[in-house]
Design a protein around this nucleic acid. Sequence first.
DNA 1: AATGAATGAGAATTCATTCAT
DNA 2: GATGAATGAATTCTCATTCAT
Lengths: 229, 229, 229, 229
Amino acid sequence: MQDSNVASIVEDPELIAKRRGQIVAAATQLFAREGFYRTTIKDIAKLAGISSGLVYQYFREKEDILLLVLLEVLDSYSREIPQALEGVTEPLDRLLKAVDAYCRVVDRHRAAAVLAYRSTKSLPPDRRRELIQQREIETNQIIASAVKDCIKQGLIRKVNVDVLVYQIVLAAHGWALKSWYFKSRISLDEFIRETIDILLIGILTPVGEEQRAKQKRRANQRGKVQLPT
Amino acid sequence: MQDSNVASIVEDPELIAKRRGQIVAAATQLFAREGFYRTTIKDIAKLAGISSGLVYQYFREKEDILLLVLLEVLDSYSREIPQALEGVTEPLDRLLKAVDAYCRVVDRHRAAAVLAYRSTKSLPPDRRRELIQQREIETNQIIASAVKDCIKQGLIRKVNVDVLVYQIVLAAHGWALKSWYFKSRISLDEFIRETIDILLIGILTPVGEEQRAKQKRRANQRGKVQLPT
Amino acid sequence: MQDSNVASIVEDPELIAKRRGQIVAAATQLFAREGFYRTTIKDIAKLAGISSGLVYQYFREKEDILLLVLLEVLDSYSREIPQALEGVTEPLDRLLKAVDAYCRVVDRHRAAAVLAYRSTKSLPPDRRRELIQQREIETNQIIASAVKDCIKQGLIRKVNVDVLVYQIVLAAHGWALKSWYFKSRISLDEFIRETIDILLIGILTPVGEEQRAKQKRRANQRGKVQLPT
Amino acid sequence: MQDSNVASIVEDPELIAKRRGQIVAAATQLFAREGFYRTTIKDIAKLAGISSGLVYQYFREKEDILLLVLLEVLDSYSREIPQALEGVTEPLDRLLKAVDAYCRVVDRHRAAAVLAYRSTKSLPPDRRRELIQQREIETNQIIASAVKDCIKQGLIRKVNVDVLVYQIVLAAHGWALKSWYFKSRISLDEFIRETIDILLIGILTPVGEEQRAKQKRRANQRGKVQLPT
DNA sequence: AATGAATGAGAATTCATTCAT
DNA sequence: GATGAATGAATTCTCATTCAT
């Protein structure tokens, strides 16, 4: 549990790490289940097995807990995805593996992932929100650089990287955000497979030259689309 | 403003519609800007130009207002998208138009769209959340049926409809959810174009037979992907 | 109960006056008995016969109550002393009457008078403290102008007005501040009589010329003292 | 630092004296600047250079610190005034010197002097307050006996000793209590001179027999005043 | 003796909700 | 129907005091 601008009264770094760990773990659970405002400091303290006053030895205010909870989520992304990519060298393999890993991290931290969408606004709008956004951008870099490598090697088309990256990210988050829907309909493995399938080769059917040209024209009216010939 | 299981003390349906309209409009604005918990009934009443007591003649409790606000957002989708599709008959055209329309509706109600992600959990978990989810499923049907039509006519591949629909939906919502990122980087038109581009034809480069086979094999390891031959 | 920069949520001035009156009366009693910090809002509300929440419809924070309580005390001085002087025209008579009246006001508001000494520091140091001090200076003007009139007419010596006025004021306040001492030893009437006695003619014995000169010389060593010849 | 009924866990009297000295010195500073309730044990401990837990080895509770702080202030009076009187034998000289010394002690301990007025009520009303009052009475004895000596020797009139003593004491304290007023208007030396001037010979102008008789009559109506003939 | 982490009672303040007018 | 004053439960945060080390 890094400090991240969050002040603590206690000095001992080990103790800080331990206590903050307890508190953040409890808070993550409760924030995810009940939401930030419905969760009281007393609830958090009780679940963490400490007194409510002690929370304030490690966090200046309730919102600081939320901050660390959210940073934890983001950190779990930028920790676990690179880890999954270790040893994978082929650019396209790396990209696919990254998508796969992202979805699986989200799945593992499902509640926390949703939390990030729900509660970021509960932070005061100052540098703390920026902290979160900065972290999100950093995490996205992992995906982005995999995408760029693929483009560089001509493995994927020259698409807009920002849009593609967020398409991937949102799809992954979607597994958590819409788990109420997917849960009973599809497994994580299938979800990942289908998502990659669509992303990689699109949805259009392969068509004869004539058809394709027609399709292409129609699609091109919508904008930049350059169907492969 | 339909009643939607939300009880009111006042009888006159016209008055109910008018007052609820005022209140929901004010609440939408404030919930979007400040969040559900930070917004007080007094704030809403003041912005709506009525007294705080009067709110309770039209809503049993604060959460009922949120419910209507969220239903309003969802309704704006299922109202405006079909409207945009009027007169468009070709299935693929309809699908592309639907995506386009969805993104534009989200753009218009940006704050409200984000609100749906942030505040749904503020509703008690009972039938009210189901109400929202039911409505979301209904809205998604519009996209889903366009997809299915395309598949039926062989215009797009047999992809998993649920996954594709949510991919589209999340991409559209992404425009609002990540507007802090896109705002300074890309226009709505570009965003829509790029999104459709990726969805339609995927990201892989068109390759010679040999290459493609190799790619395909690799991709297939990841799951179902069946690259077109 | 004038507003004095203290904000209220309620608009109706009559109601404000009534409620603030209740609250300030209760608070005065409790602050005097228990001190500012030992007194809780709940205590005040209960004694005032209202709910604790209602207090915050008429005062923004606890310290605002203290402010009004203190201003009330000071106002009682500047209201009651001039009233006692009505019809008294002879300057010396006015001065003596003023001293007498001051002591009696202090006696009547004994607890509140002490409160002013105890709790002014509990106010935030900004303009609120200045407000109190400004008011004190204004009240002292009543005494000061009586003193000046006497001097102008040659009824009393040219003493330092500031010092004299505070001597009078402190003596009057002393009746409250040291009531634990005086209570069992002397009556208010006696106290006033003795105080005026000392102030008017000092404490030195009338002495023969020679003695007096010696005394005078000794006294003069201490400073400005100019014994009358 | 005498024990004064204040219990300590530590045995070694020297250590007790040293630690209590540190704590009381720090507390005096903080109480004076921030007030009793605004000052925390942690603040005191930090300023005293010890841990907060250690405070409770030398004081049973926070109020015990206040008690010692206040006793310290009172002791500084009864220590420094007699010291200033050393070698002064003439009764009137002693009285004047006592007044002078009192004002100067108050000036030196200005913050602490005010503290006594502000915080005595923060003590529980039991024997501890009595302890303070007893000490105050003792200090006043120094002034009182000087006054009595003067009266005995016919140097000053037979005025009410209690009233006169408190008049002197309050005037001296006034220098601290109203320093916000005097600070910019008068020096300590002037203040002392003027105060003594008024006390010694009163404020009435010396007048011809006829005038004086009139004045006397008027003054006498107010009470006991017996103008010297 | 000393430290400082831990406790938990307590207090100010807010605000959804009710109710008299 | 409408108003807005009144209620009181609930929550955050502070800090005196205790206690394990």
